[in-house]
């Protein structure tokens, strides 16, 4: 396989990433957003692993140690990206753990995990605060007017 199809891993990585990005942006459900974030990062793992491939290469393991007889001299796949992505997987799991912990706390505080409902509740809180402010403001005005009267 050659040409654009020959590097199909890279196509899959791009598609996975875009599905993830779409989910993060478009899904109002916070759990779905977390899943989408996971997909997005998985795409990147696939990219790193694909990058490590060497034509005709095998796993970078010294076979003499395994069977004691023959030693493979051929090219090995680059192990460095594999190691890097092991770290990145740990990071991604931690991000997911923190995200889920936050979502549990959000569920406790708001009673929902739908982003638009949460947004509406925050707006309502804000309006309530504002109205409280207005009330004090109005009271202020009355006081000032009365003061004005007295002076007059």
């Amino acid at each position: 396989m050659t040409g654009a199809l020959g590097i199909y891993n890279y196509w899959i990585y791009v598609v996975l990433m875009m599905i993830g990005l779409y989910g993060v942006i478009a899904k109002p459900n916070l759990i779905k957003q977390a899943i989408a974030l996971g997909l997005f990062q998985t795409g990147i793992f696939l990219y790193y692993i694909s990058m490590a491939v060497v034509d005709g290469g095998t796993a970078p393991v010294w076979t003499t140690i395994l069977d004691g007889a023959q030693k493979y001299e051929g090219p090995y796949d680059n192990p460095l990206p594999h190691v890097l992505i092991l770290t990145a997987i740990v990071v991604s799991v931690s991000v997911l753990a923190v995200a889920l912990a936050l979502i549990i706390n959000i569920k406790r505080a708001y009673g929902t995990i739908e982003y638009d409902e949460i947004e509406a509740m925050d707006q309502a809180d804000k309006r309530a605060d504002y109205l409280r402010g207005q009330v004090t403001d109005a009271a202020d005005d009355v006081e000032h007017k009365q003061e004005g009267h007295h002076h007059a």
């Binding site: 974030l37 997005f40 991000v95 995200a99 936050l102 979502i103 505080a109 949460i118």
Partner: peptide, 17 residues
């Protein structure tokens, strides 16, 4: 203020991206 939670999650998602 409970909005700290949503603020944090929003930062988490954008920051991770």
């Amino acid at each position: 203020n409970r909005q700290a939670l949503t603020a944090s999650l929003r930062y988490l998602i954008l920051g991770s991206v």
